[in-house]
Design a protein around this nucleic acid. Structure first.
Lengths: 338, 338
DNA sequence: CTGAAAGCGCTAACAT
DNA sequence: ATGTTAGCGCTTTCAG
């Protein structure tokens, strides 16, 4: 691997000049500049990013931490984040902490240290059970800006999220509007902010329609397929059977739909199902899933905007910037399942 | 952010000593070592990876480039790769080049330069249309070991893949064994090695059963849902109608299944469908998809093994190591769709 | 068992 | 318009 010194020698200039033509950081004679370019091409030179980063004390890289790459929602936002970051001149490295149960905590610990060591310009965190306030604090203490996606607010972090509660109120109003009175809910993973906000929206949606929530109609899910499948099986045993179920996310809804098929219960005729997220798959199953769009494009775009701004605005020492919070719009997508 | 110098000062030792206790690279008096640890804890010190990487000329990081994060197959192998890499002490950064058509080439160009600049210890490449031999060559010339997943062999790169042809021969034998004679095929994306290998397996599977391939039964897909949906629609217009279709991958198969549902054609009664990959989703739709396991666990594991070995075995100057090639096992998974 | 000091490859004052 | 040079924070001879 040739270094800048090699290029300088070949072009008969100093490394300073090479650096400046590379970065366009001061005017250099066209002829000189040309010689440098030729040398670069001949030597197949490429800047050593490690050295550059050390010198400029910046990495032009963000870390993105997601709980689960197997739920398509996260790849969907990850892709947007990568595009937007590239457009803004940053790279992003994805840390996904879904692993065979048990190993997760270790891996997360490992990631956390790696993230601190790598000196990312910002870290973008999707809500995860493992991402505790303590974890945030470590990062914040090290001066890294944090952008939260969903989860709970933190005084020293920017945050972008959708209004889960309002979105679910929308689906409840829709379901009630279609005449459903016995509406069940399969919850998300216990302990997650999005789970409880959606649950609350479910309950209040019922109340608002003058229906008293029936605890029998609330079963625990996990945001995973299995949770939906098992939860639906339990719901199908209830009498009366719910005429509609709101699943905490699309994966859960898919599990619920499969449970219905396996039990020879027709969707949406015997039971309506609505999910949450509007992952691509929602439109690609039959019946197509009614759901709410989670704003993956907007979330990705805003997260990067916040990250870039947090990074560039950062005052050298101390001076706390005002943290921002942005709510992206949701939208009920009516399809065939409910 | 405190530096090693700060730690040294606080502990009353030299930076050399701090470095050595951190890396366990020479024996140091227990008492001294303890003082250093205390200072590290107090200051919340964490190694500056950038500086370290520059000095040791290694990044302990691999790049993984995948064509498409929205096809669950790739997240599935990415997750395994990350775990295995973490276990071996490496990080991996994922570059996904799926973007709204057209932008792809630019983004890929951008990624390629970023990858060269970042001095990854190895790059792992899943087959992509954009990853040309020229692209490989640039990386290889820069001395970065390359590990190919699937695709076509390259003399200077390791490679891990499954035997697509043999796998498809297995599915054809299975279908023929169930009495199917009119078997159609929805192909993968044009120009990809895995597409043609699977197509060849399809044709030869027919021939081996004494059936002459009917060009009408071969329709072009794209490895995407849409390709499967559209392809199936065309197949359903054929007379006679095929009694079975082999889709180039699971996403395609899902599209095909949806097309059948929409056309009121029953799967598997009127037409059997089999896919390829065995993504998690395959078991989570109804009817559950018959498919072939693509060895995502094995591919991930082997890719990292090759990457680590290519990185550590690398001879300082020139000396070409023997490139390795590993074939991971496939397995027909019979479910309900065919 | 420990320290001093030379760099890794680059950028950015500070010269000229 | 260009060159010299001092580091960025770390690891690792080389000395002791």
């Amino acid at each position: 691997m040739p270094t800048m010194k090699d290029v300088a020698r070949h072009a008969g200039v100093s490394t300073a000049t090479v650096s400046h033509v590379l970065n366009g950081t001061r005017t250099v004679q066209p002829e000189t500049s040309e010689r440098v370019r030729i040398a670069i091409a001949n030597l197949q030179y490429e800047t050593n990013g490690t050295a550059r980063n050390l010198r400029v004390r910046t990495t032009s890289t963000f870390a993105l931490v997601v709980p689960d790459l197997s739920n398509p929602f996260f790849p969907e936002v990850a892709v947007v984040i990568q595009q937007e970051a590239a457009r803004a001149g940053y790279d992003v490295v994805i840390y996904s902490i879904d692993v065979p149960h048990g190993e997760s905590a270790d891996l997360f610990e490992h990631y956390l240290r790696a993230i601190r060591r790598k000196r990312y310009d910002a870290v973008i965190y999707a809500e995860t059970l493992l991402v505790t306030p303590t974890a945030h604090q470590q990062l914040i203490d090290s001066g890294t800006p944090i952008i939260l996606i969903g989860g709970t607010p933190h005084p020293q972090a920017d945050r972008v999220y959708i209004d889960n509660y309002a979105a679910v109120r929308d689906v409840m109003a829709y379901l009630v509007g279609k005449g459903h009175r016995t509406i069940a809910h399969i919850t998300g993973a216990a302990g997650m902010a999005s789970s409880s906000a959606r649950q609350q929206g479910y309950r209040d949606g019922l109340l608002a329609a003058g229906i008293v929530p029936n605890p029998e109609f609330e079963v625990a899910g996990s945001f995973l397929y299995e949770g939906g499948y098992l939860g639906m099986q339990r719901l199908l045993e209830r009498t009366p059977r719910p005429s509609a179920v709101f699943a905490a996310n699309d994966e859960t809804a898919l599990g619920a739909m499969c449970a219905c098929v396996d039990a020879h219960v027709s969707v949406p005729d015997e039971v309506a199902i609505v999910g949450f997220d509007d992952i691509a798959l929602a439109a690609n199953v039959r019946p197509a899933l009614t759901t709410v769009y989670h704003g993956q494009r907007e979330i990705g775009r805003e997260a990067i905007r916040l990250a870039v701004s947090a990074h560039t605005q950062r005052t050298p020492e101390g001076g706390e910037e005002q943290k921002q919070t942005v709510i992206v719009p949701h939208r009920l997508i009516v399809r065939d399942s409910g």
